[in-house]
Design a protein around this nucleic acid. Structure first.
Length: 568
DNA sequence: GCTGATGCGTC
DNA sequence: GTCGGAC
DNA sequence: GTCCGACGACGCATCAGC
């Protein structure tokens, strides 16, 4: 008996320490095969369950702090964290900023750490409890308190590896290559609801708890360098069968899932956060609408848009009206998941469409609390093309094409989005150090545009490079003597870590022009700065000179067109 | 009270 | 949101 | 096809510091 107890105690201490947790994470991080990652995690979950830390272990893995409080701070501010690290290990703040704010390889850090290590590892549950206390702090002076508590935590670590994952948690980036989707697979529905806050929709449906939304894939992403033609879309996405699919406008707003049960309305965002209180007035209006129209219980998939004088406002303007003046907010329903005691996930889209069209009114120019989108069927490419062009003329983002299939939460397979994208030549001015897997490279670049003899910042860019390209660019620009900040940009808020002495022209793809509080427009017609939405690297243009970038006038005109609602 | 920096949400 | 990498 | 983690602009909320 005694022996068994001893053994149990021993195992308990082994598996429930932070050291155990950090070793598991290290194993998972090093493994590139997702299946193996998941099975490693599954094994660890069993151990965690045995020692009653399963919930904490999952939350730690997902950097999710368990709290009932809405006011919770999601991450420890970087300066607080770095300052705590610097003090704990007697390091210069700037060194921490550059090196130890992100611990990837242990080579440098282990030496620093060894002088400070504790011999025994803290119990995992106790560590998680302490972390939770940090995140629950708010209000004046809380950053100082946080710093003290972070220092405590750091000093409790018994290995450099533990410090690594502690820091990652505090920064809310665990980056072990395993995240919510994989964890979700290993949970049953009740755990999913409790720990992840959503349901998969695979079995019964519980109203009032969000369901993972179905998503779309981008046609352009899968057909790089190619012109959008309806013929190609018909062939690739629809297998030459136009009859079964639906075409809809793509409204540029905010996705909301609406639950109406027992006379109560709940709203959930795309990332499954509850938004009922954020859009309180809209919620109340919806409740009134549903009550008055004797609605059955429903779950609707909608896009929230914002009306003003009978016009739909651009996304950017919807954002700043969202909180103060919700009277203009309006929902466009484009799918239904539940109606009148019936789960509709396993109905085809044409069946669901029929239901939501029968209980809502079609969208009009004038604002309604909730309306339904107009779906079309087309017989040939010409009709498709006319519809797409009309969507752009009407100032919309683009169109959606939907197969006549079941609603599959999380899937991107059955919905296709087609958006208009544009290219522009810009000049690279400087670079910013990368983070995480890009730590040894530049991770993004400042781009400028030529105007009146000067280069003016217009956007940053950090996607669209292959790893090889990024490495090449980093080597190229870092090997040249670095330039300095041009005098007219000394006040610019987001200074690059490295100013380049050589300014090359890159071709950049973007979606739309935006008014910018950060990037200064050097144009007398504008009282705001200007930038671009969703910038991505396309290719280098060694054949172009900096004077051939832009011109900014094109962007300004594009911006005015949107303002005046004149398109194409 | 205001401003600037930072984090987090939307896309 | 976009994108590339790995499976 | 799926998942993950790099990175973008912008608006709002929060907190430090004045």
């Amino acid at each position: 008996m005694f022996c068994c107890k001893q053994l149990r105690l021993y195992r308990f201490q082994q598996f429930s320490t932070f050291r155990w947790c950090s070793q598991v994470f290290d194993q998972i991080e090093k493994e590139s095969r997702r299946k193996i990652k998941i099975s490693l995690f599954q094994d660890a979950l069993k151990q965690a369950q045995e020692f009653k830390v399963k919930e904490e272990f999952i939350r730690f893995t997902l950097c999710d702090v368990n709290s009932q409080s809405q006011l919770i701070e999601a991450a420890v501010p970087a300066n607080v964290l770095y300052s705590a690290i610097a003090q704990t290990y007697n390091l210069e703040f700037s060194l921490v900023e550059r090196l130890y704010g992100e611990i990837n390889s242990m080579n440098n850090f282990e030496d620093v750490f060894n002088a400070h290590k504790k011999s025994t590892s803290i119990q995992f549950s106790s560590l998680f409890q302490k972390i939770q206390e940090i995140f629950e702090l708010s209000g004046g002076g809380c950053e100082e308190q946080k710093e003290v508590l972070v220092k405590d935590l750091l000093s409790l670590c018994s290995s450099a590896q533990e410090v690594k994952y502690l820091i990652r948690f505090l920064k809310k980036r665990m980056r072990i290559g395993l995240s919510t989707q994989s964890v979700s697979q290993l949970l049953d529905e009740s755990e999913r609801k409790r720990l992840l806050g959503y349901q998969s929709g695979s079995g019964d449906l519980q109203k009032g708890i969000p369901i993972q939304p179905q998503l779309a894939k981008s046609f352009q992403k899968e057909n790089k360098e190619e012109e959008i033609t309806m013929e190609k879309i018909k062939k690739k996405f629809l297998n030459d069968d136009l009859g079964g699919c639906y075409f809809e406008y793509k409204y540029d707003g905010e996705r909301l899932q609406v639950h109406y049960t027992n006379g109560e309305v709940k709203l959930f965002g795309r990332s499954l956060e509850e938004k009922t209180n954020q859009f309180k007035e809209l919620s109340n209006q919806l409740k009134g609408h549903f009550d008055n129209n004797k609605f059955d219980d429903v779950i609707l998939d909608c896009e929230m848009i914002c009306y003003h004088n009978g016009e739909i406002l651009p996304f950017q303007e919807m954002q700043n009206k969202t909180y103060e003046n919700s009277v203009y907010l309006s929902l466009v329903c484009f799918d239904i998941l539940y109606h009148n005691k019936q789960i509709l996930l396993n109905k085809t889209y044409s069946q669901r469409l029929q239901i939501y069209n029968s209980i809502l009114k079609p969208i009009t120019k004038q604002r309604q609390v909730i309306s339904h989108i107009i779906s079309h069927k087309f017989a040939n490419e010409n009709e498709m093309d006319r519809f797409y062009k009309q969507a752009l003329l009407d100032g919309l983002e683009g169109i959606m094409i939907k197969r006549d299939t079941f609603y599959t939460p999380g899937s991107r397979n059955d919905w296709l989005k087609i958006k208009k994208e544009k290219d522009i030549d810009l000049v690279v001015l400087g670079g910013y150090y990368g983070q995480g897997k890009r730590q040894q490279w530049l991770g993004s670049f400042l781009l400028g545009i030529y105007e009146n003899g000067r280069l003016h910042p217009i956007a940053k860019i950090g996607t669209g490079f292959s790893d090889q390209k990024l490495e090449e660019l980093t080597k190229r620009y870092m090997s040249k003597p670095s330039g300095s900040c041009p005098s007219h940009l000394i006040g610019f808020k987001d200074q690059p870590h490295v100013w380049f002495s050589q300014n090359d022209v890159w071709e950049v793809t973007y979606d739309t022009v935006s008014a910018s509080p950060l990037y200064p427009a050097q144009n007398s017609q504008l009282n705001t700065g200007i930038s671009v939405r969703f910038p991505r690297f396309k290719r280098e243009r060694p054949d172009k000179t900096i004077e051939q970038s832009g011109p900014i006038q094109d962007l300004v005109e594009e911006y005015f067109k949107v303002q005046k609602k004149e398109f194409l």
